[in-house]
Amino acid sequence: MNRYESTTVWNAVDAYFTTRLTPEDAALVAARESGSETTMPNAEVAPNQGAFLGLLAQIAGARRVLEFGTLAGYSTIWFARAVGADGQVVTLELEDQNAEIARANFVRAGLEDRIDVRVGPAAQSAQQLIADQVAPFDLVFIDADKPNNPVYLDAALALTKPGAVIIIDNVVRNGAVTDEDSDDSRVQGVRTVTRDIAIRPDLDATALQTVGVKGWDGLIIARRR
Rank of each mutant, 00 (worst) to 15 (best):
A60I: 02
R200I: 06
L21Y: 11
A27Y: 06
D96C: 08
G54F: 08
V140W: 00
D217C: 05
F79Q: 01
A176N: 12
A164N: 01
L129T: 02
N170G: 05
V9Q: 06
E5R: 09
G61N: 06
T19D: 15
A43M: 15
P23R: 11
S36Q: 10
D183G: 01
I130E: 13
I197A: 05
R200K: 09
A155S: 14
E93R: 08
T70L: 13
R103S: 03
P121G: 12
D145F: 02
P162D: 13
T70G: 08
Q209W: 14
V83K: 00
A57E: 06
I101M: 00
A102S: 04
A104V: 05
V171F: 07
E44R: 03
A104W: 01
I167V: 15
R64K: 07
Q128H: 12
K214V: 02
D113R: 08
L153G: 03
D113V: 03
E24V: 00
T19M: 09
A62Q: 05
R114V: 12
T22M: 07
T76Y: 04
A80C: 14
I221F: 03
K161M: 04
A30N: 07
L55G: 03
V65S: 11
L71M: 13
A164P: 03
T178V: 15
R103V: 01
A46K: 00
R108C: 08
V107H: 14
V171H: 01
Q188C: 02
P147N: 11
V213N: 06
R3I: 12
G218I: 12
E5G: 14
V9W: 14
S185A: 14
R81N: 09
L159V: 02
R173I: 08
I101F: 06
A176H: 07
A155P: 01
G218Q: 14
D196T: 00
V190P: 01
D154G: 10
A85T: 09
L208C: 10
D217M: 01
A46I: 11
M1S: 15
T206V: 13
T194G: 05
A156K: 05
Q127W: 00
V119F: 08
L21E: 13
E67R: 03
W216G: 00
G175V: 07
P23Y: 14
S34Q: 13
A12Y: 09
I142Q: 06
R64L: 08
G215K: 00
S185G: 00
A27Q: 02
I168D: 02
D14N: 15
W78S: 10
G218M: 03
E33L: 11
R191M: 11
T39W: 06
A12W: 07
A31P: 05
V193Q: 04
T210S: 14
I77R: 05
T206A: 14
K214Q: 10
A12L: 14
D86V: 08
V107M: 09
G215V: 12
A131H: 11
P47I: 09
R81A: 10
V140S: 09
L129Q: 02
T178A: 15
Q127C: 12
V89T: 08
S185T: 15
I77C: 11
Q88K: 15
V45S: 11
L157Q: 13
G73H: 08
T19A: 15
L129D: 06
Q188A: 02
A109D: 01
E24A: 10
Q133V: 12
G110D: 12
L219R: 02
A176S: 14
A43L: 13
E67N: 06
A131G: 07
G110T: 06
D132W: 03
V134M: 10
L56F: 10
T39Q: 10
